[in-house]
């Protein structure tokens, strides 16, 4: 059965940065995420390194294991193969870039083990 895709990854989607600036999703840069998180009182950017990519429960899904932050917390997420992550210094990347381009018209690189993705954590966690 078809899974609803997040609408904001569609090429041309308008994204509001923390300072109010509007950009298209395909024009976002690493600095946009870093600067938005710096302004945010609640959110903090973490570096999440792809450790493993395995098949998921369904043919269109993958399980990605990340090593998150300085503590290298191991976190697994199951996503559709076309789900894009933002890789530091590289931009949008997914496990199946052809499918991401087909569905979202969003140019993507291939997400690989060792890639470092932008992720978020809460500030002030103790």
């Amino acid at each position: 059965s078809p899974v609803a895709l997040p609408p904001f990854f569609m090429r041309g989607s308008i994204i509001q940065l923390a300072d109010g600036e509007l950009k298209r999703v395909e024009d976002l840069k690493t600095e946009d995420f870093i600067q938005s998180a710096e302004i945010s009182s609640e959110l903090k950017i973490d570096s999440s390194t792809v450790e493993r990519i395995d098949s998921g429960q369904s043919p269109n899904a993958v399980v990605i294991q990340f090593s998150v932050g300085e503590l290298k917390a191991q976190v697994c997420v199951e996503v559709l193969v076309e789900y894009p992550f933002f890789v530091f210094g590289q931009g949008w990347s997914s496990c199946c870039p052809d499918r991401t381009t087909q569905l979202f018209e969003l140019s993507c690189a291939k997400l690989c083990v060792g890639d470092v993705c932008v992720s978020l954590t809460l500030r002030g966690m103790r």
Partner: peptide
């Protein structure tokens, strides 16, 4: 035209102990 917040594009993966 809908406008989406920047943080909806980034996965929320894990809380950290620091900060």
């Amino acid at each position: 035209v809908p406008v989406f917040p920047w943080h909806s594009l980034v996965p929320f993966l894990a809380p950290t102990q620091s900060d």
